[in-house]
Design a protein around this nucleic acid. Structure first.
Lengths: 349, 349
DNA sequence: CTGAAAGCGCTTACAG
DNA sequence: CTGAAAGCGCTTACAG
């Protein structure tokens, strides 16, 4: 039982060598510094025996790296993010990084605060799914000279590194699929806050698909942004309203999995049959969609590549990062999503 | 645009005072050290202007605290853990701690490795859902003199702090409920690895309930541990076997949500109707269970209290932690779970 | 009321 | 081949 952390000098002292030598050997630079094999072995053996663990505070203070990355998302219990987080963590571990995870609840102030906290912790870089409407927080990161990469959401007004899916295209294809199934009254639900780029792009893709088809017209009436804190009631009211006015759509594109689940609940409540009364295509494929009745046709995002590209590139940025260097080229990756057909869409005649 | 992090000495220099004074003021100890109001304000103002952020490496090196906690679980994308993680993170932030999350995949070696890594990062404490069969890793933590608290799983052979639910009682009650609905052939599925205390206790509670009822007998035949990597095929084979031998149970207690979902898939495949052919009660209530057909009767764990107790107590332990002090009293909290009745159980006659 | 100094535990030139 | 020394940016006695 030992009661005090063992340090470099402990080892140096016990072996009658200098701290410097011990440090060099333990960092695997023994050979290149011409430390004799015998000495190296002595050092390694004792370090092992004493269960020596370098103090990363000291190391970090000296070399300015923490080997820790921050992941800032709206909510880690959201399955979309928890899956990405898992992939990111795997990749981090394999590259010897750790991950600090923070939630913003789509709140810009909170986002600012958590970013400040993890900056103080000297994280080496940030993977950020920003909740902000403006780019203040990004501007700040840039000024702090810390490498960061956006995921899931981007800012057209603020050029920077990002990995996203092509939401416009995915939404267009999903909508086109509904059109091909004969649907003419197709609604689109996005989730608040309404400035989030992924939601906006999904809406625009939807609109594009509608407008590309001469026999149906886009109608504002069928596009709704659902308040994330009052999903059930919002959707219930919308459906009642449409129903009363006899303009119920026959299909709906849902830009968010939580909205889709709520639609299912509302439909169960007011006895709208899915897919016969209402077809659904949803974004954010989650496990649940394979277990609902009917199973849900969904836009599947390549989460693993997503995480890999983001983490891989962030680490590259961290390693090549030079202070004072003006960034001119940005890593901007758009991945393709896939429409997975299940049972929530029927042909409409 | 600034290119160099501002430090204490920068501020001190610009103001013509000492670093010590600046440090004291910024740590809110100006008054107790009798620094004049005027000086304090000057310091605070400049720090604000320069956007000064204390370097936590330096601070940590000096005071030995990182204000960071490690959360080690099997898989953060598992909904049970992602929800707990969210609550834990919230609590941490409110107490000015950050959270490093690590996954073990129920692998003891990986658990050992991630624990070592985060120890090097000088985390102040660990919340651990251990995958280990033996208590080597716990013993190590104890030897490292770092406060830790187990969640979800405990070790009867290793006294330490923990927060768990009363799995025995919860399983007993759930099984008793099935018995009261008239079921006589009741199976129990747990998930591998079979040494996990939560799974063991759930099985024991199940067994106890069965044995407490004179008109049915416990039969090994109905207790299965499902290989977590081959769930679908394992369950399919078990069901086929039971079916062929005409001993299909009428109800099943599933000790894990992933098993429950797989049961649903298998039943869909081989046309077993739930709940009419087979009633189910499941542990680990997740959102999905409200959307399946039928909805799933489940044992609900109080995740928020869970997270709160664990985090609150860990932080208490961290703050009161004294090296060299023999731990004799342990925080050992057992929370009650709740059975939420839905549609996956029918009366059996 | 405020400053000078030591030290936390590393790493990295530099000297020999 | 190896060691002495400086320094990363803080905090904390201690001195005045």
């Amino acid at each position: 039982m030992k009661y005090k952390k063992v340090s470099l000098s402990d080892i140096a002292e016990m072996l009658g060598v200098s701290k410097a030598l011990v440090s060099i050997v333990l960092n695997g630079k023994g050979d290149e510094n011409g430390i004799s094999k015998a000495t190296q072995e002595k050092v390694l053996k004792l370090a092992e025996e004493l269960n020596y663990k370098p103090n990363q505070f000291a190391r970090g203070l000296k070399i300015g790296k923490s080997n820790t990355i921050g992941l800032v998302v709206s909510d880690i219990s959201n399955q979309f993010y928890s899956k990405i987080a898992r992939y990111i963590e795997d990749y981090c571990i394999s590259e010897d990084y750790n991950l600090i995870i923070c939630n913003t609840d789509e709140n810009e102030e909170k986002e600012k605060k958590v970013i400040e906290t993890i900056l103080e912790k000297q994280i080496d870089g940030i993977i950020l799914s920003s909740a902000s409407e403006n780019s203040n927080n990004l501007f700040k990161l840039q000024n702090e000279n810390i490498p960061f990469i956006l995921i899931d959401r981007k800012f057209s007004s603020f050029p920077c590194h990002y990995v996203v899916i092509d939401n416009f295209k995915a939404a267009q294809e999903a909508t086109q699929y509904l059109i091909e199934q004969g649907h003419k009254k197709i609604a689109c639900f996005t989730v608040s806050p309404s400035h989030i780029s992924s939601q906006v792009d999904r809406f625009l893709g939807y609109k594009e698909a509608i407008n590309n088809n001469s026999f149906i017209n886009y109608n504002d009436f069928y596009y709704k942004t659902i308040d994330r804190y009052k999903m059930y009631n919002s959707i219930l009211n919308i459906f009642r309203d449409w129903s009363n006015n006899k303009v119920m759509p026959s299909a709906i594109l849902s830009a968010n999995y939580q909205i889709t689940l709520t639609i299912l609940e509302v439909c169960r409540e007011i006895n709208i049959k899915i897919p016969n009364d209402l077809s659904i295509v949803s974004f954010d494929d989650i496990d649940v969609f394979r277990f609902t009745t009917p199973t849900i046709t969904a836009v599947v995002q390549p989460l693993e590549s997503y995480a890999k590209y983001a983490t891989e590139n962030l680490i590259k940025l961290i390693k090549s990062f030079k202070i004072n260097e003006e960034q001119k080229e940005f890593i901007q990756i758009k991945l393709d999503a896939n429409l997975v057909l299940r049972d929530s869409v029927v042909k409409y005649n």
